[in-house]
Amino acid sequence: MRMIITELYKLFHRKEFYISIGILASFSLLFAILIGTDSNVMEISGGGISGAMFTAFVVQFISGFLGMAIFVGITVASIWSGEISDGTIATMILKAKNRRELFLGKLLATYLSGIIYVASTIICSSLFYILIGRYGSKYNPNYFDVVENDYISFIYITLLFVLFSTSLITLLSMKFSQMKALLAMLGILILTKILEKVDSIKTILPTYITDVQRIFTDSMDSKTILFTTMIIVVYISILNLGSYTIFKRMDVK
């Protein structure tokens, strides 16, 4: 618990954290303005757009170009790789009860940071849509209209994706510098996106992990959601176990 509190204390003092939230919020603001002004840039077919649909769209857009992964990756890489390379990890090792406590504390803090990024994007999207999007002709005041159940699944999958990205970059940070770890993570996620198109590989890869748009085009029943979750959790566990094994044996040179 001590370690999580300390990590969050440090995180909330990093300007990169606030810059990331600001950039993520700016997407929400931009799209809210486009919808609020009935701009031709965005063509919307069908009936009105509810707040939930708008939020889902913003998060899907950001996730589509791996934006969420980039911001999560920058934060996580600096928490792990940055502290390992600059030596501040040494103090933490001596202060912690053991390396397991330190590892878990940092890991949970990085998960929380990812959840904060997703949550802040959802909150900003909702707020901007209500404040600005309301002036557009497609505005639907019923926030949860149309996509009630899908919306919950969609947030859930996005969060799983963020946790997966966090665990992936944590593992990479054990061996690589900040920039290399980030680039390696993005490379792996792009490769995953490509391989998901191959039917024979789809079943063993964490499906929908990078393609949240599918939540609206394919119907995801509870069985599929459960299966997807299990695969992702297994992957996350393997990544975390790998990271901890390396960290436990690491010499702080």
């Binding site: 370690m3 440090k10 990093r14 103090t91 933490m92």
Partner: peptide, 16 residues
């Protein structure tokens, strides 16, 4: 932690 003050660096140390 360069982004923290001297006092806050010490504080982070204690909090651990």
């Amino acid at each position: 932690y360069d982004y923290l003050t001297a006092y806050k660096n010490m504080k982070a140390n204690v909090m651990m």
